[in-house]
Amino acid sequence: MFLIFGLAREYSDDDLVRKFRAGDRGAFAQLVRRYQDRVYGMCYRWLGDAATAEEVAQEVFIALFKSLDRFRGESSLSTWVYRITVNHCKNRKTYQRRRAWDRHEPLEGNPRDDKPDREIADPSSETDDGAMQEEASVLVKDALASLGEEQRQIIILRDIEDMDYEDIAEVLGVPRGTVKSRLHRARGELAKALRNRIGKEDVKV
């Protein structure tokens, strides 16, 4: 019974960091499993294509592996992971812009591979629900692409990653008031981009 309890126990982030520092590579594997969807999702929504997102997300975890022993615990581990992810996404965006400028390439990502891979086989992929989910994901992607970079950042962190204002301010290195005003404008633009494409009838006032 105790063995089963031990196997089923969910370690906290702090526990896993402590175990990693003590030399347990398996602890890092658990951290990757815990954060991979969030990190990959943020990269995908920020950078716009699956291949680049996977590459950058992998770089994030490699950076995390190398720097985890310097994590002092002043903020939560999730905030720290998001901060690393934001920095990597920004750097990649800067690199893409520079390369597009040098080679006269279009700025937006690889047109051949725009869809995210699904980890779990979707049993409804043959039905209308699967197609609708696919279409909705594309709508979100297009709407985010129509926003400026700062606005896209804030929508991803608040409305997709569900971070609170203080954590967003810490990750982006801006005052809380700036987060509020930026989010307000970003949502206005988002509503304009999705206008007439999504239903508003079910929204309760």
């Binding site: 996977e54 994901s137 979100v140 409305d159 997709i160 569900d162 949502r187 206005g188 509503a191 999504i198």
Partner: peptide
């Protein structure tokens, strides 16, 4: 209503999963 609908739509359809081979 317009802003709220947009926010809820993104919240519902925004998250994506990492590929199976990622880990």
């Amino acid at each position: 209503k317009e802003v709220l609908a947009a926010v809820e739509f993104v919240r519902r359809h925004g998250p994506v999963s990492a590929p199976a081979r990622f880990h």
